[in-house]
Amino acid sequence: MEIKKKQINVVLGPSGSGKKELILKELKLENYPDLYEEKYMDKTLDEVLSEKTKHKKKKEEALQMIHLSLDALTKKMTEFSLGEMKKISIAYTLCGRESTYVFLYPDVGLDAKSKNSLIKVFRLLKTRYHKTIVIVSTDTNWVHQFADFVFVVYNRNVVLEGSTYDVFCNTRNCKKYQIEIPKIIEFEKMVLKKKRKKIGYRNDIKDLIKDIYRHI
């Protein structure tokens, strides 16, 4: 498994396929912090983020990036909703100064607006700060919008890798390795199968609309 430097790498695979273990092993990380652990519950967010950075400005920047109010710093960890906790896990990662940022299932528990903001954060980390990003997710519809490189893990092995186009357009392999095909590709394949029309590859629904209009 060769993580692409300064790119957005996404790791996909069915539940229990060993995605997380493989990434931790590859990046030589001992474990991934779980902010739901009992030891964090009595602490304020400020205290928790202090594990990663002592700089107030860095903490504030991380919170701003994921659209959490600065007042959150003084709140106890028990006061946050599930979705807010997910955002906090992301802020916690962002407070570090690593060259590679790892996000495990960052989309789970987030609404569309937050997921779209997160895409902007990943792009910013990549383009402005030249960071390597590794994301483990199960939501192919979401990652299809921004991933540069995709790894598919099955039975603890990387069985597919390539650009989003290479991986997701190979629908036979996606089915074989139990990866959900992004809806936008499913649509394009359905048009080709039923109507014998090639409308092309898109990862944005707005572009797809233009293609549809051109082909009807």
């Binding site: 695979g13 539940s15 199960t138 939501d139 192919t140 519809n141 139990q178 959900e180």
Partner: peptide, 12 residues
Amino acid sequence: EALSMVDHFHKH
């Protein structure tokens, strides 16, 4: 959100 961590292929 009881199936939120199940991969989408199997969740559906």
